[in-house]
Simulated assay, not measured.
Amino acid sequence: MNRVAAVLFDRDGTLVEDVPYNGDPGRVRPVPGARHALDLLRAAGIATGVVSNQSGVGRGLLTHAQVRRVNERADALLGGLGAWVYCPHAPAARCACRKPRPGLVLEAARRLGVAPRDCVVIGDIGADVLAARAAGARGVLVPTAATLPEEVEAAPRTAPDLLTAVRLILGDSGGERS
C-alpha cells in the first residue's frame, strides 16, 4: 500500500453501532475497539475523518441539527476526528455525494488537506468500498450483519473488525503495530 495520509470511516455500523436514522446523541455507542483504533492512527500522525450517508434528512426523518448532534457525540466519545462529512440526500436524488459516488471521500480529503489517493476508506458495506474506488482512494471492508456476501466477495480487502483493519493499514504504511 502507498503512503496513507488519512483514514476515512463510515459512521453507522463501522465507528458506532448502527441505529437506523438515529437523531438521539444518547443512543451513540462506539463499536468495540473504535477508540483504540483511532488512538493508534493519531499516534502515527494519520489524519482521520468520517464519510456518512444520512438519507434520513432527505427522507424527512432527521434534521441537519440532529445529525450534527449525533456526530458531535460520536466525535467526543472517539477522541475527535479531523473531518465529518455527510450526504443528506435521499437515494432518489442521485447526488454526487452519496456513496457509492465519490463526493464524500473527495470532500473529506479536501478538508483534511490530503490527496484522495493517499486515503483509505473503512466501511461495512459495498458502497463504502465503491466510493473509495470512485475517488481514487483505497477501501477496506469490515463486514457486519448488514454486509451482503457478494460485497465481501467483491471487496479488494477485508478485515474481521475495525481494530484489525487499522492495524493492517498501519502495517502497510510503515506505522507502528501494537
Rank of each mutant, 00 (worst) to 15 (best):
V70F: 12
V70Q: 14
V70W: 12
E72K: 05
R73V: 01
R73F: 01
D75M: 10
L77I: 08
L78K: 04
L78A: 02
L78P: 10
G80R: 13
L81A: 01
G82P: 11
G82Y: 12
A83W: 06
W84Q: 14
W84I: 13
V85L: 06
Y86V: 03
C87D: 13
C87S: 09
P88T: 06
H89Q: 01
H89V: 05
A90S: 11
A90L: 00
P91F: 11
P91N: 09
A92N: 09
A92H: 15
R94I: 00
R94W: 02
A96Y: 13
C97F: 03
R98H: 09
R98G: 15
R98K: 15
K99H: 09
P100C: 06
P100G: 00
P100E: 09
P100R: 01
P102S: 03
L104G: 05
L104E: 02
V105S: 04
L106M: 05
L106N: 01
L106F: 03
E107R: 14
E107I: 00
A108N: 11
A109M: 10
A109N: 04
R110C: 01
R110G: 04
L112M: 06
V114P: 00
P116K: 04
D118V: 05
C119N: 03
C119R: 07
V120Y: 09
I122R: 10
I122Y: 11
I122P: 08
D124V: 06
D124M: 08
G126P: 13
A127D: 14
A127M: 09
D128I: 02
D128R: 12
V129H: 04
V129T: 15
V129G: 04
L130R: 15
A131E: 01
A132H: 14
R133L: 08
A134V: 09
A134R: 14
A134T: 12
A135G: 12
A135P: 10
A135S: 13
G136L: 15
G136R: 15
A137P: 02
A137I: 07
R138W: 10
R138L: 11
G139C: 10
V140E: 05
P143V: 09
T144F: 09
T144E: 11
A146F: 13
L148R: 15
L148T: 05
P149C: 07
E150C: 04
E151V: 05
V152G: 05
V152S: 05
V152K: 03
V152W: 02
E153A: 15
P156L: 06
P156W: 08
